[in-house]
Design a protein around this nucleic acid. Structure first.
Lengths: 126, 126
DNA sequence: GGCTTGCATTGATATCCATCGATGCAACCT
DNA sequence: AGGTTGCATCGATGGATATCAATGCAAGCC
């Protein structure tokens, strides 16, 4: 039997607080749980479209009244998905008068992107 | 320059380039559905750890017999998660004699990373 | 105050999913 | 052939989740 041992390398958090990358070392349980929460928030087509509509908006902000009619879903359902995206730290919102405006939090997106990136392209970040 | 020399299998998209990025333009329904399937596969801590264990392995391959004992789960459950990762195009496997070996498909990971990456992070610390 | 609009919350429900034990199947080993 | 090991598949089940109608709540308007 080829019983090899998978030793979890010490999570060397160098220059990055949480996770040095999916490929660099096996994930610990805690990190996996936290990251899975983020990816789960992206694992729905409605939420992906919502996030994309918010993040790609030129002014950086979108009113909910501009998001809801783009879907064939009820208003509470859209509100529910926006809440999940907000709880995941992907977007944030603010009420301004009658309307509520949402904007994207690119730090979380970049963190996930860095986590997924395989280290085959050598580059130097500032 | 800096042309990618990797043959990206998953990008044989007849409708042109699949997804230029989450931030560049609102996602269509079809693209959102396909990408959500991928992110959903990553939205589980067990699958994230499995993928990390596979992708971080030096030789590039891991035997299932090395993966299963790392979890407090039954063998069918691990097999189920591996199947989902494989259906998502994140890993692939091959039977060699008695054992089955899994390896990562970095093209899919890079595609997701590129999709999440924001154009340029301009120090957004409000 | 009373009415309307925009959005969030609640409660209910149908569907999905992670997990398990049992079983099946392929390959190796006497 | 018979037995054993490694892994996948099946069927069942409890918990999570996406969705809706109804309702609540804040803000503007009459």
């Amino acid at each position: 039997m080829s019983k090899q041992e998978l030793v979890v390398i010490g999570q060397t958090d160098e220059a990055g607080a949480c996770c040095p990358g999916l490929v660099s070392a096996p994930l610990g349980e805690d990190q996996a749980m936290e990251l899975a929460r983020l990816f789960k928030a992206l694992g729905d087509p409605v939420r992906l479209r919502l996030l994309s509509m918010i993040a790609s908006r030129a002014g950086g902000e979108v009113c909910v009244c501009d998001l809801t009619p783009a879907f064939d879903l009820s208003q509470p359902t859209i509100s529910h998905h926006l809440k999940l995206l907000r709880q995941a730290g992907l977007i944030d919102c603010e009420r301004r008068g009658t309307w509520v405006y949402y904007w994207a939090l690119p730090a979380t997106l970049d963190r996930l992107a860095a986590f997924l990136k395989t280290p085959q392209t050598a580059e130097t970040t500032t």
